[in-house]
Design a protein around this nucleic acid. Structure first.
Lengths: 70, 70
DNA sequence: TTGTGACTTGTAGTCCGTT
DNA sequence: CAACGGACTACAAGTCACA
């Protein structure tokens, strides 16, 4: 599985687990709402700067977001 | 410490530990040598696609490359 | 062997909206 | 609330010559 897809599904799963909407997460991470949507669909490969913003908004480490969680 | 700098120093350290030149690493990861040089100097925030290419060329997980190694 | 500048191209990332 | 479109700007990605 390519890292972009792994990241995409981790992002969606962790966001939902925290009970956040895409918009709330986007606001916390200070990135665009539509971009979060695109990331969860695997359309883009984010930079590690964005990866870190999302990770901290979710309260996890950046590594957690790109690691295969079986 | 920002993730970009953490990545930059990890990249250089791990490359040197493996005894590879920037050129050899670039070749293995199928990216440009001067781009590797830029990454080690923290000029760019790589996408997770590039992160993965470099990680696999170094034989480590992507997470290892962005984790603070005190 | 690595750093750097100048440059071009492609994709990341934003902002407006509608379904 | 989320998917998706177009139009745009910002920056990563890649190339080359040269110190």
């Amino acid at each position: 599985m390519e890292i972009r897809k792994t990241f995409a599904s981790n992002l969606r799963l962790m966001r939902q687990t925290k009970g956040l909407s895409q918009e709330e997460l986007a606001h916390r991470a200070e990135i665009d709402r539509t971009y979060v949507s695109s990331l969860e669909r695997g359309i883009y490969s984010p930079s590690i700067d964005v990866l870190e913003k999302l990770a901290s908004a979710l309260g996890v480490s950046p590594g957690e977001l790109i690691r295969p969680h079986e």
